[in-house]
Design a protein around this nucleic acid. Structure first.
Length: 863
RNA sequence: GCCACGGUGGAGAAAUCGGUAAACUCAGCAGACUUAAAAUCUGCCGGCCACCAGGCCUUGCGGGUUCAAGUCCCGCCCGUGGUACCA
């Protein structure tokens, strides 16, 4: 073996070995237990960034560890290849998204391979491949048949200059990112998937996912947002309107007697009716329709309203209630109308104060004074209050009042209790080119007709170049023009494509069944569910909820036999980097990569200002944020790999922080990871040249026994840390092992202790830095392939010790230590502590009030 | 705004059950080796007080529970992720 650590040579050799031996190609014919380890598939943005390296190294460490523990491990990889960035790149470089995407895939695949991940590449898939997305189309048609997919209108961000739909990401401060034009809300028809039909199951099944982080389950539960309340109506009679009821939903029916107004969404029929002969109101409604559709914008904007001049009747008292239009009422949520109870709802309170609407208290809490001057938390407290000034409901508590009022509404046929979800159905239509075509045909005679299964896939043309003004598919006559599958007459193809979350909702199942001429086949039931799923915390809600929904829909269509796709979930923390941007003259935003920017710091190291190196003009510092193509703040690991090797990059990534924690990028410390690997190599060389000693002598000197004990203790700790995926401390355990081996004292058996301890070190380190460990394992003659080695376990005999040291505290402060026999009785320990010189010093003129003994840890004397 | 998570030395971090705060590493400082540099090795490295012995303080801020709090409870501040068309 070479004396010097030559990373690139070692890595090439190890990768060649794995390729030749087909080490990571797996199948279902194994007598080992299966283990499906899956990392979220990357978007092929051009180059890997540090977030990818982190994600895939975590997955690889888990995969290799489980493999050495005797599992049949599947670890596949693929490409989330449809999406917006390809269209943006196309506009910038005049390259078709298809070419850009496939070029990126080729480059990034090469990068992944150079990192030495234990991937089964024969299962690779790209979601932009017609052989993949045909099954999106096929399944969409099945959902259409089952009524899970349906059509209704959706509200989108509209750029009036580019005449195009904008993604939320493309709306910055209410303006289109390219044009700077004020964004408008526009209604378009679109297809929805009825995820709300599964809301109860999606919520309930969270309890059956003990391997998911609590925080993710909490977020999903809140997102689904099940509530029980009452849906009821305010009756009205308004000339020119056929309907005679204004429906609302509330969880606080107990405050119904405090209603002083109603508010409807700008798109509500009552608003439209009132506006038809009220230009001021029409103008206000138009104003409500300006701005983006984002929830964060809706929630933070100033709450505004305008009276419609219409009124409805209180369902119980019959009193006239004014109807307002409110910019904060969402048509897409419930019935697009809400009751206003200013006394007991904080938002209604602010609204009433602003417009001088009456505030009527109907819930009181003993000893607390209600005042309309300022909002107080208890006004909305469901638990403490009782009804007042509410007629026959006076004195009832919240739940009794809700029950009584719901019953009265029911008897009047004006409402009933209802379970409500915050979750909305999943709108999947996108007015974009680079996505999976929705397999429908529009015929003047037959209406909307599904493309027959035999004609799937509807293939997306590969050579379009978007220009930012709408979907180029609509201009492609050869795509759009077709004949109706039903009547044969000329017809037009649907040009909307599917949300890319469709692509990623079932790819994990397709990995299991490469080459199947169905969506999936029986092999999926061998591998699924995924035993360990690893991906960014940013997917905690949407991707993970859609995948769970999709799995249940596939199950209900008889395609798979499992209920949940991901048994265990590890949510990786984001890798963050600094963000710099500038708004140009047109009002659009340009981002600068950190290396394109020069920083000025204050004395404390805080960023004061930044200028672009290119032109010396100032750029705005946007703080830190997740590495992304669009913000141009990704760091390419390539130079790291070239300079130090894949093992150093992998080790450093694992060492830097625990997987779930957010990581602010900095490359200081990479050098240290490299130094460590060089020392590991040097130790291997030293052991090899001084001769490998397999047999430990019958007895060891106390010093050597201590070295051996330390390494076995570290092994015990590392094994524990592996079970909880805390790889940073596994990495530091291997560093501590090396420190101990290097300091191994002279004496009989030194070679044997070093040989044994180093074999432990290599195996524990091998999932993190597989190349160097592969080389050392072979070169030192431990075996042919470290992948086939058994995972090390600490040896009890090596851990044994006769005495232990306990911390001695007086009044909770550390004052010294005592040494006792292992397993000594509490009374004995107490006596040793009290007799100690340190304790005696503190006991002069007083006595111990209490002595707390924590076995194996400490003694605390309270005086 | 709302939901979730986080905040520990100059930096990344560790501390498994409420039991020695800062393991391991980076940066820095001092030294050894060297003609020199690189590499390597050794020592120091939270703050204040002290001649030493040692003492006091310190886990974003303010309170609380406890023999004992980074860890548990209450109230704030700041940061990150998500917020349904970024993926």
């Amino acid at each position: 073996m070479q004396e010097k650590y030559l990373a690139s040579e070692i890595e090439r050799a190890a990768q060649n070995y794995w390729d030749t031996a087909r080490s990571f190609y797996v199948n279902e014919n194994s007598n080992k237990p299966k283990y499906y380890c899956l990392s979220m598939l990357p978007y092929p943005s051009g180059k890997l960034h540090m977030g990818h390296v982190r994600n895939y190294t975590i997955g690889d460490v888990i995969s290799r560890h489980y493999r050495m523990r005797g599992f049949n491990v599947l670890q596949p990889m693929g490409w989330d290849a449809f999406g917006l960035p390809a269209e943006n790149a196309a506009m910038q470089n005049n390259v078709p998204p298809a070419k850009w995407t496939y070029d990126n895939i080729a480059y990034m695949k090469h990068q992944l391979q150079s990192l030495g991940f234990a991937l089964d590449w024969k299962r690779e898939l790209a979601t932009c491949d017609p052989e993949y997305y045909r099954w999106n189309q096929w399944f969409f048609l099945r959902m259409l048949e089952k009524g899970i997919a349906y059509k209704k209108t959706q509200i989108v961000n509209w750029d009036p200059v580019d005449q195009t739909v904008l993604a939320n990401e493309q709306v910055i401060e209410g303006r289109g990112w390219r044009t700077g034009a004020l964004v408008e809300k526009r209604e378009l028809p679109g297809y929805y998937l009825a995820i709300t039909k599964y809301a109860d199951e999606l919520l309930g099944a969270l309890d059956d996912l003990p391997g998911w982080p609590e925080r993710v389950k909490a977020m999903q539960a809140n997102w689904i947002g099940r509530s029980t309340g009452v849906r009821f109506a305010f009756p009205y009679r308004i000339d020119g309107l056929a309907s005679d009821k204004l429906w609302v939903y509330t969880t606080r029916a107990d405050t119904l007697m405090g209603v002083t107004f109603c508010a409807v969404a700008a798109e509500h029929p009552l608003a439209a009716h009132a506006a038809s002969h009220n230009p001021t109101l029409a103008e206000f409604i138009a104003e409500c329709k300006r701005g983006s559709v984002m929830e964060a914008d809706m929630a933070t904007m100033e709450k505004k309203g305008m009276p419609t001049g219409l009124h409805v009747l209180h369902p119980i008292t019959g009193a006239q209630i004014d109807v307002w239009v409110g910019n904060y009422v969402l048509m897409s949520y419930g019935d697009g109308a809400v009751m206003g109870v200013p006394a007991h709802d904080e938002r209604d309170f602010a609204f009433a104060k602003k417009y001088g609407l009456p505030i009527k208290q109907v819930v009181a809490v003993e000893n607390l004074e209600f005042s309309t001057d300022a909002w107080q938390e208890w006004y909305a407290d469901k638990a403490a209050g009782r009804c007042v000034d509410s007629g026959k409901y006076d004195g009832l508590d919240s739940s009794a009042a809700i029950a009584a009022i719901a019953e009265d509404l029911r008897s009047m046929q004006l409402g009933e209790p209802q379970v409500h979800y915050r979750l909305r159905d999943w709108g999947v239509s996108r007015q974009r080119y680079w996505g999976c075509p929705i397999p429908l045909v529009h015929c003047e005679t037959c209406g909307t007709v599904p493309v027959p299964d035999a004609d799937l896939p509807v293939v997306l043309p590969q050579d379009c170049v978007p220009d930012g003004s709408g979907n180029p598919l609509a201009k492609r006559e050869d795509f759009v023009n077709c004949s109706c599958p039903r009547c044969g007459k000329p017809a037009r193809r649907e040009t909307d494509t599917m949300d890319t979350f469709v692509d990623s909702s079932w790819y994990y199942a397709r990995y299991c069944t490469p080459g199947a001429d169905a969506m999936v086949d029986a092999r999926t039931n061998y591998w699924m569910p995924v035993d360990q799923y690893i991906g960014g915390i940013e997917h905690a809600i949407l991707h993970l909820l859609y995948s769970r929904f999709w799995t249940k829909a596939m199950r209900d269509l008889g395609l798979v036999s499992y209920d949940e796709p991901f048994k265990n979930l590890l949510t990786q923390g984001m890798v963050l980097n600094h963000i710099f941007s500038r708004r140009n003259a047109k009002g659009s935003i340009e981002y600068f990569a950190p290396e394109e920017v020069e920083l000025k710091h204050d004395d404390g190291g805080r960023v004061l200002s930044a200028v672009a190196k290119r032109d010396g003009e100032p750029v705005e510092y946007g703080g830190v944020g997740t590495m992304s193509k669009s913000k141009r703040n990704g760091v390419d690991p390539q130079s790291l790999i070239e300079q130090y090797g894949a093992d150093t990059a992998r080790f450093f990534m694992m060492f830097a922080a625990p997987p779930e924690q957010t990581l602010e990028w900095s490359d200081t410390g990479v050098e240290g990871a490299f130094r460590f690997l060089r020392r590991v190599w040097a130790m291997g060389h030293q052991i090899q040249s001084s001769g490998i000693v397999a047999q430990l002598p019958a007895t060891l000197s106390a010093d050597l026994a201590a070295t051996r004990r330390e390494v076995h203790l570290l092994l015990r700790q590392a094994n524990y840390d592996l079970t909880r995926f805390q790889f940073n401390t596994v990495a530091s355990a291997t560093m501590k092992m090396l420190n101990a081996i290097e300091k191994a004292p002279a004496g009989e058996g030194r070679g044997a202790v070093m040989t044994e301890c180093f074999s432990i070190l290599i195996r524990v380190l091998s999932p993190i830095t597989p190349h160097i460990c592969h080389a050392l394992w072979c070169d030192l003659g431990y075996g042919d392939d470290v992948l086939a080695a058994s995972w090390p376990e600490p040896v009890e005999a090596a851990l044994k010790q006769d005495e232990e040291t306990l911390v001695l505290q007086v009044n909770g402060k550390v004052r010294g230590s005592i040494t006792v026999k292992v397993g000594a009785a509490k009374q004995t320990i107490e006596q040793v502590a009290l007799d100690s010189e340190v304790a005696q010093k503190f006991l002069v003129g007083t006595s111990a009030k209490k002595v707390v003994v924590v076995p194996g840890r400490l003694v605390n004397i309270v005086v």
